Structures are given as structure tokens and as C-alpha cells.
Computed example of a mutant assay.
Amino acid sequence: MNPTEAPDSRAAMSAPSAWTTAKPSSIAGRLGAFWTELTYLLRIQYAEVRETWMWVIVLASVFPFTTLLFMKFFLESPSEDAVMRIVSGNIIFPIIIMGINGLGNHIAWSRQQGHFTYYASLPISKINFLFAFMLRGFLMTIPSVIIMTIVGQLVFDVHIHLSFGLIPMVLLSVAGSAGFGTLIGFLSPNQDLANMLTNLLMVFLNFLTPVMIDINQLPAPLQIISYLFPTTYAADGLRLLFQGSWTMGVTVDALVLLGFISASLWLVSHKMDWRLEK
């Protein structure tokens, strides 16, 4: 394979007419072209993930499962609120592992290997390109989120209130973290730095931000820093939904996550020269 060719790019080349034809001027035509671009980009990302999908699930589940068991053995008679924080925090754990750590490293590695040079030769929009990577984050994360939701209830023998509000909150949580991971991947000059940064963030976000503990238990500087990360709002929103219905606090968390997603997309698509390897 050519070193500048993206993995599984043959799926994209199977329909060259979709990407080599000039974009139509009508709104319906533009929407059709937009969807065609996105469809083929999603097929490429799916082709990359499907062969290692089971390993991804195991990797994203084993760390939060280990942490969950440690908390179970270490804590004696925790309060209901503490249990909900632990369970919701360990659901956020695979989102951090795959949405920030895994996706950030993959993008940085792809840039370093010159894979994006292939995409630079195609008349595709940056937004579609970024949406495809965010879907990759969904594919790698959602199975482990479901697994940890079930395991968390069984380990701590706690009842989680399931509602339809969990669907948009989980989607926003994954998308917010995937957007953050995408930003790290494009900002990092090489894969080594991205790997060190994402590993550091994985430990920091899980244990030094209000993912599994109350924000009031943290020192003031850490409380302020915590508000800069989407995982803080994701953990809070899920915990509130697990304990009851959709409240104003959940709405605030959802809006902030939507802001993180929009900011990540804007920064990468307008400020980063992702097509060319520096």
C-alpha cells in the first residue's frame, strides 16, 4: 500500500464519481453530495474499526471494570450518592479511553504516517471528515458504555433509573469527548506527544476531576480546571439522570457538551491545516 494512502481507502475509491464530480449548485444537490461524501467516509472508518472491534470493547471495558471492583472492595457501606458517582464515573471511563485517548492517538498517528495526504487529494469538506472521525468514536465507545451500565448495577446492587433522556446525554457525552480527542490529535505535532498527553489526561480526568467524586472534595484550583473538560458535565448529567428524570441541571450539562462539540468542530475545521502534514 502506498504510505500516503489511508487504510481501507479502496472503499472510497470504489466510487470515484461521487468525489470527482463538481458539486451541484442547488440546495438538494448539495445535500445529496454532502450525504454521499459522509457515507463513503463513514464506510472507511467502519472498515478500519470492524476488524479490531472486539478487542476495542475488551480494552475499553477492562480498566473501568477493574476500577469498579477496586471501589467495591475498598469502600465500606458507601452512600447512595457515592455509589451513583462511582457507577456513572466508570461509565465515563470508556468514553475517556476511546473517545479521547484512542481517537486522539489514532489521528496523530495517521497524520504522522501521511494518511491524510490521501484525503487532501479529494474534494471533501472538513466537516464531513470530522463527523466521520466522531462516528469512529461512537463505534469504539458505545458497546463499553452499555456493558459498564449493566456491570455497575450488578456489582453495587443499585437500581439505575433508565429513561429516554439517557440516549441524547450519552450521545452528547461521547461526541463531546470524541471532539476533544479529535482536537488533541490534530493539535499534536507527532504521535508520541499525543500518546503522552492522552495518557496523562486519562489519569487526570478520572481521578482528579469530578468524574467519580464530588467536585466539592477537590481543591479550589482543580475545581476550576475541571470545568474546562467535557467529561465533568458528562458525568454530572448521567448521574442526575440515573437518580431521576431530566432536570434543569441535566439541560445545562447537555448545552455545555453541545458547546464543546461545536467549539471542537469549529477549531479543527477553521484553524487547523489538517490536510497537509507539517
Rank of each mutant, 00 (worst) to 15 (best):
L68Y: 05
Y46D: 01
S269P: 05
L162W: 15
P16Y: 07
S125M: 11
N195V: 10
E277F: 11
P230G: 04
R50H: 00
L154E: 12
S262C: 12
T66I: 15
A263G: 06
T198W: 02
S25R: 14
L267P: 00
Y227N: 09
P221C: 08
T52M: 01
Q153I: 09
S163R: 09
L201I: 06
Y40A: 09
G102F: 03
P219K: 08
S79R: 09
A263K: 01
M54G: 03
G179V: 05
S188V: 02
L135E: 01
A263D: 05
W266M: 12
L258P: 04
N90G: 06
A132K: 01
I147D: 01
N2L: 11
S9F: 12
P3D: 10
Y227G: 01
T198S: 09
S226V: 02
P210I: 04
M272K: 10
H159F: 13
M248W: 14
S25T: 14
S177A: 15
G237E: 03
S125N: 13
F116A: 03
V151G: 04
A28S: 14
W274H: 07
R43Y: 07
A178I: 03
I127Q: 10
P7S: 08
D236G: 07
A15I: 11
F129Q: 07
E5H: 12
I146C: 06
A47R: 08
I96A: 04
F164P: 08
F93L: 07
P219L: 08
F260M: 06
S177N: 15
M169C: 08
G237P: 04
S144K: 02
H161K: 13
L238H: 04
L205A: 06
M202N: 11
T232W: 00
I184R: 00
V174L: 05
F131H: 10
F186V: 05
V151P: 04
F131A: 12
L75G: 07
S245W: 12
A220E: 13
V49T: 00
G165K: 01
L171M: 14
D273L: 12
D253K: 07
I213G: 02
F242T: 00
E5K: 14
S125F: 09
I215S: 10
G176A: 15
R275G: 12
Q191K: 14
F260P: 04
S269C: 09
I213T: 11
W109R: 14
T209I: 05
I27V: 14
P123R: 15
G137K: 03
K23V: 13
S26A: 10
T247G: 06
M54Y: 02
F34G: 11
F242A: 10
A178S: 15
M84I: 11
A12V: 13
F34L: 13
L201R: 01
L139P: 04
L193K: 11
L172R: 05
V56H: 00
L130K: 02
P78A: 10
I213E: 06
I57E: 02
L257P: 01
A6M: 10
D157W: 07
G114P: 06
I127M: 14
W274V: 11
Y227T: 10
N199S: 13
I100E: 00
Y40D: 05
G237Q: 01
L200T: 15
L41I: 07
M212H: 02
T117M: 13
A235V: 04
T209K: 00
M272F: 15
S264C: 13
T21M: 11
I57F: 08
F229K: 01
F129W: 13
E277N: 15
A28C: 09
W266C: 10
D214H: 12
Q153C: 11
V170Y: 00
F229I: 03
